[in-house]
Write a protein that binds this DNA or RNA. Sequence first.
DNA 1: AAACGGTCCAACCGCCCCACG
DNA 2: GCGTGGGGCGGTTGGACCGTT
Length: 280
Amino acid sequence: MGRAPCCDKASVKRGPWSPEEDDLLRSYVQNHGTGGNWIALPHKAGLNRCGKSCRLRWLNYLRPDIKHGGYTEQEDRIICSLYSSIGSRWSIIASKLPGRTDNDVKNYWNTKLKKKALAIQQPQQQDYYSHHHHHTTKQQQEPAPAAMQQAPATLAPRYVDGGAMPTAPSSLAEFSPALPPPQPTGAVAINNSWANNSGAMAALEDMFLPELLGAGEFPIGDHLFGGGFGFGSLLLQDHHRATSSSSVQAAELSACYFPNAQAEMWADVKPPAGLCHSLT
DNA sequence: AAACGGTCCAACCGCCCCACG
DNA sequence: GCGTGGGGCGGTTGGACCGTT
């Protein structure tokens, strides 16, 4: 038995918001706040909408100081860095981008940034295989494991075969990612021995996160994943909702470093009169 | 000009977590 | 301890828009 819906979907309006509805919601929240109860808000505000719909509309569109589009190179870097570190935890990522919402960041990543990153990665992938795999065995002809083909796993510039450490790129356009060697078994590319190979992996977030978050605020690497941080943990976190205990543990651990991050951010912003901080 | 396919994004869905009685 | 209500979150979808044929 599932839980009861938050509202009667048949009797509330759905779909795009009209300017009049926006005005009603905006003026009500600015004058009265949310009262800590989004479910009751639509009735009080004279809106025939689901409370959750009102909340989403406010948070993603009507909230003051929301920015839409026009992502900067620095914001690209922040998103890529954090995505490679913590996966698709958009609310956390958005909390580090003032004026951006989780929905906006998520859409931006899915529609633009992921492709941008893939486009950068693919020539590197071809280059790697042409240099390291002249022998065409059956195994090598097989496609890389699905997890390895995912964008986040290939974003971070990596050491390959103990090569020289790259200098920190100053922008996404300067990413110099290199793929790990193909896994002979075709298994998901979680390979801590490879990842730990004399510090052979320099995750992008190691370069960017101190800049983003301040030194010590987000102890990537040793603290998060017992020293085995790198490509493998990247994949784990990309699937933080998976049921494996290791991924759940990784997700929980990483979450510890962002205690109510968005609330803290909003606590620093003086809200308009009548606006409460419970919005987030 | 019409048809088609791809892109983008606002909005919805469903699940999880937490507070409270 | 348990059930319930509400908030928060990530994933998915529907449709508008745009470029190409």
